[in-house]
Computed example of a mutant assay.
Amino acid sequence: MGSQPTPRCIIVRHGQTEWSKSGQYTGLTDLPLTEFGVGQMRRTGQAIFGYKFIDPSHITYIFTSPRKRARQTVDLVLETVPAQLKKNIRIVVDEDIREWEYGDYEGLLTSEIVSLRKSRGLDQECPWNIWRDGCENGETTQEVGLRLSRAIARVQNLHRKHQEEGIPSDIMVFAHGHALRYFAALWFKMGVEVPCDGKDPIPATYNDPTVPYVPLTTFRHLIDNPNFLLDAGGIGVLSYSHHSIEEPALTLAGSFVCPPEEESQHGDVKLA
């Protein structure tokens, strides 16, 4: 196992849109990238692959939100990847990693949401917290937590399989600001764990026979702000401690590409 890099989940927020620039909440509204956002993500792709921060031959899957801004970002980031390598990357469109559905708050600024809720007599005891309170006529935090827990279970199951087969496996997830910060928090088990209680039927959220559905008996959801930042076009790296899929962790610092002999300080790798 020490001869192979530990699997990673690389999260990428889509590039700039008009609403990400203005701060408007963008859930189901299907906006394209701005001209700046297009150039932003082209430069990102050139940097991460040109400097081998990510080896494209190690990418096994890309999961993307169905929204135009996420799928456009995938295409732009992969532009410099050679065709013979790109054809080996399976791209899976997955509804489970779409952005939070904001309901009545779609297109509003945070200040406008706070004023709207105040006019409706809400938040008299404590300020609005989307991670706890969700959105009126949109998704609750429990609903977002369930679908992102499903997505994480599938990614980690693929990582486990690839690790057993000795295959380097970087899986990239292209999505949105709230969804990816939530995803990262659940990756290393923030929030609370609750039973599914029959809430987890097999969902038709993606269509790829090579990605096994992983049934859940429990899932996690947040009850407070994880206090993560991820700007438009931002990238984060999630991985595992001690080379163990059972120990998901956040890569906070250090070199973006860590050779296996350096990883050994975190595990039980026997070096010759």
Rank of each mutant, 00 (worst) to 15 (best):
G27K: 01
G27D: 05
L28I: 07
T29L: 01
D30L: 06
D30Q: 06
D30H: 04
P32K: 02
P32Y: 01
P32I: 03
P32H: 03
P32T: 05
T34Y: 08
E35I: 03
E35M: 04
G37E: 12
V38S: 05
V38A: 07
V38N: 05
Q40D: 09
Q40V: 04
R42A: 04
R43P: 01
R43N: 12
R43L: 11
G45H: 11
G45L: 10
G45C: 12
Q46D: 11
Q46M: 04
I48T: 02
F49Y: 15
F49C: 07
F49D: 09
G50H: 11
Y51P: 00
Y51W: 00
K52A: 15
K52Q: 15
K52P: 02
F53C: 11
I54K: 01
I54R: 01
D55L: 13
D55C: 14
H58E: 15
H58V: 06
T60H: 03
T60A: 05
Y61F: 15
I62S: 11
I62L: 15
F63Q: 06
F63A: 05
F63R: 11
T64Q: 10
T64S: 15
S65V: 03
P66A: 10
R67A: 13
R69A: 05
R69N: 05
A70K: 11
A70V: 09
Q72W: 00
T73S: 15
V74L: 10
V74S: 11
V74Y: 07
D75A: 15
D75V: 04
L76E: 08
V77G: 06
V77T: 08
L78S: 11
L78N: 12
L78C: 15
L78K: 08
E79G: 00
T80P: 02
T80A: 07
V81D: 09
V81N: 09
P82K: 10
P82T: 12
P82L: 12
A83N: 13
A83K: 14
A83I: 10
A83R: 14
A83D: 15
L85G: 04
